[in-house]
Amino acid sequence: MLARPNRLTSGDDYRAAVRRGQRCGGPRLVVSVLPTSAERAPRFGFIISKQVGTAVVRNTVRRRLKAICAEVLDAVPVGTDVVIRALPASATASFAELQADVGRCLRRLVPAGSGSAD
Protein backbone atom coordinates (compact mmCIF):
# COMPACT_ATOMS: atom_id res chain seq x y z
CA MET A 1 0.00 0.00 0.00
CA LEU A 2 1.00 3.63 -0.25
CA ALA A 3 3.08 4.99 2.61
CA ARG A 4 2.18 8.34 4.17
CA PRO A 5 4.82 10.35 2.23
CA ASN A 6 3.24 9.07 -1.02
CA ARG A 7 -0.28 10.36 -0.27
CA LEU A 8 -1.83 13.72 -1.00
CA THR A 9 -3.50 15.02 2.15
CA SER A 10 -4.12 18.73 1.57
CA GLY A 11 -7.17 20.02 -0.27
CA ASP A 12 -4.97 22.72 -1.82
CA ASP A 13 -2.69 20.06 -3.30
CA TYR A 14 -5.69 18.20 -4.75
CA ARG A 15 -7.06 21.42 -6.28
CA ALA A 16 -3.69 22.38 -7.76
CA ALA A 17 -3.20 18.97 -9.38
CA VAL A 18 -6.72 18.86 -10.82
CA ARG A 19 -6.78 22.47 -12.02
CA ARG A 20 -3.21 22.95 -13.26
CA GLY A 21 -2.14 19.39 -14.06
CA GLN A 22 -2.32 17.57 -17.36
CA ARG A 23 -5.28 15.21 -17.75
CA CYS A 24 -5.86 11.85 -19.32
CA GLY A 25 -9.33 10.35 -19.26
CA GLY A 26 -11.10 7.16 -20.06
CA PRO A 27 -14.42 5.47 -19.39
CA ARG A 28 -13.45 4.50 -15.83
CA LEU A 29 -10.90 7.10 -14.63
CA VAL A 30 -9.57 10.61 -15.07
CA VAL A 31 -5.90 10.99 -14.12
CA SER A 32 -4.37 14.44 -13.43
CA VAL A 33 -0.58 14.78 -13.18
CA LEU A 34 1.17 17.90 -11.91
CA PRO A 35 4.99 17.95 -11.88
CA THR A 36 6.37 20.19 -9.12
CA SER A 37 9.88 21.33 -8.31
CA ALA A 38 9.72 19.87 -4.78
CA GLU A 39 12.37 17.33 -3.80
CA ARG A 40 10.05 14.74 -2.29
CA ALA A 41 8.52 11.41 -3.13
CA PRO A 42 5.71 11.37 -5.72
CA ARG A 43 2.27 11.68 -4.12
CA PHE A 44 -1.06 10.16 -5.11
CA GLY A 45 -4.60 11.22 -4.26
CA PHE A 46 -7.96 9.65 -5.03
CA ILE A 47 -11.37 11.19 -5.63
CA ILE A 48 -14.20 8.67 -5.47
CA SER A 49 -17.67 10.20 -5.30
CA LYS A 50 -20.92 8.62 -4.21
CA GLN A 51 -21.86 8.24 -7.88
CA VAL A 52 -19.41 5.31 -7.97
CA GLY A 53 -21.55 3.31 -5.54
CA THR A 54 -22.04 2.41 -1.92
CA ALA A 55 -19.31 2.85 0.67
CA VAL A 56 -18.23 -0.77 0.22
CA VAL A 57 -17.85 -0.32 -3.55
CA ARG A 58 -16.04 3.02 -3.19
CA ASN A 59 -13.58 1.58 -0.69
CA THR A 60 -12.93 -1.42 -2.93
CA VAL A 61 -12.15 0.90 -5.84
CA ARG A 62 -9.91 3.05 -3.62
CA ARG A 63 -7.99 0.00 -2.33
CA ARG A 64 -7.47 -1.25 -5.89
CA LEU A 65 -6.22 2.14 -7.05
CA LYS A 66 -3.85 2.42 -4.07
CA ALA A 67 -2.38 -1.01 -4.86
CA ILE A 68 -1.93 -0.06 -8.52
CA CYS A 69 -0.21 3.21 -7.59
CA ALA A 70 2.11 1.40 -5.17
CA GLU A 71 3.20 -0.81 -8.10
CA VAL A 72 3.96 2.13 -10.43
CA LEU A 73 5.59 4.32 -7.78
CA ASP A 74 9.10 3.90 -9.23
CA ALA A 75 7.95 5.05 -12.68
CA VAL A 76 6.71 8.43 -11.42
CA PRO A 77 9.29 11.25 -11.13
CA VAL A 78 10.25 12.82 -7.82
CA GLY A 79 7.99 15.73 -6.83
CA THR A 80 5.02 14.71 -9.00
CA ASP A 81 1.44 14.89 -7.73
CA VAL A 82 -1.08 12.48 -9.26
CA VAL A 83 -4.83 12.66 -8.64
CA ILE A 84 -7.08 9.85 -9.86
CA ARG A 85 -10.81 10.52 -10.11
CA ALA A 86 -12.89 7.33 -10.31
CA LEU A 87 -15.91 7.50 -12.59
CA PRO A 88 -19.06 5.39 -12.03
CA ALA A 89 -17.88 2.72 -14.50
CA SER A 90 -14.92 1.96 -12.20
CA ALA A 91 -17.33 0.22 -9.81
CA THR A 92 -17.74 -2.74 -12.18
CA ALA A 93 -14.18 -2.71 -13.57
CA SER A 94 -11.76 -5.49 -12.74
CA PHE A 95 -8.36 -4.87 -11.15
CA ALA A 96 -6.69 -5.52 -14.52
CA GLU A 97 -8.90 -2.97 -16.29
CA LEU A 98 -8.14 -0.29 -13.70
CA GLN A 99 -4.45 -1.19 -13.87
CA ALA A 100 -4.46 -0.82 -17.67
CA ASP A 101 -6.22 2.56 -17.47
CA VAL A 102 -3.83 3.98 -14.88
CA GLY A 103 -0.80 2.63 -16.76
CA ARG A 104 -1.99 4.09 -20.08
CA CYS A 105 -2.56 7.52 -18.56
CA LEU A 106 0.73 7.59 -16.69
CA ARG A 107 2.64 6.55 -19.83
CA ARG A 108 0.93 9.38 -21.69
CA LEU A 109 1.46 12.08 -19.03
CA VAL A 110 4.78 11.19 -17.37
CA PRO A 111 7.93 11.83 -19.45
CA ALA A 112 9.68 8.62 -20.56
CA GLY A 113 12.86 7.69 -18.72
CA SER A 114 12.04 9.75 -15.64
CA GLY A 115 11.55 7.69 -12.53
CA SER A 116 12.13 8.36 -8.87
CA ALA A 117 15.73 8.74 -7.81
CA ASP A 118 15.76 6.14 -5.02
Results as ranks from 00 to 15, higher is better:
Gly25Trp: 13
Gly21Met: 10
Tyr14Met: 04
Ala41Val: 15
Leu87Ala: 06
Ser49Cys: 07
Pro111Phe: 01
Cys105Glu: 09
Lys66Leu: 00
Ala112Ile: 01
Phe95Met: 10
Asn6Leu: 06
Glu71Tyr: 11
Val56Phe: 00
Val110Asp: 03
Thr36His: 13
Ile48Tyr: 11
Gly25Met: 12
Ala55Gly: 07
Asn6Asp: 08
Ala117Asp: 03
Val110Leu: 11
Val102Glu: 04
Pro77Phe: 02
Ile47Phe: 01
Arg104Cys: 03
Ala38Phe: 12
Val72Leu: 14
Ser10Arg: 14
Val110Phe: 05
Ala100Tyr: 08
Cys69Ala: 13
Ala100Val: 07
Glu97Thr: 13
Gln22Trp: 08
Val76Cys: 10
Pro42Trp: 03
Arg63Glu: 07
Phe46Trp: 11
Cys69Gln: 00
Val72Phe: 13
Thr36Tyr: 12
Asn6Gln: 14
Val56Asp: 01
Ser90Arg: 12
Cys105Arg: 10
Gly53Met: 07
Asp13Phe: 00
Arg58Val: 06
Thr60Phe: 08
Arg58Trp: 09
Ala86Asp: 01
Val76Trp: 09
Leu8Asn: 08
Cys24Asn: 09
Ala41Thr: 15
Cys24Lys: 02
Gly79Gln: 03
Leu98Met: 06
Val56Ala: 14
Pro27Met: 05
Leu2Met: 05
Val83Lys: 09
Thr60Leu: 09
Val52Glu: 09
Arg20Phe: 05
Arg19Asn: 12
Val83Gln: 09
Pro5Val: 07
Gly115Ile: 13
Asp101Arg: 05
Leu87Val: 00
Glu39Cys: 13
Val82Tyr: 05
Val31Tyr: 07
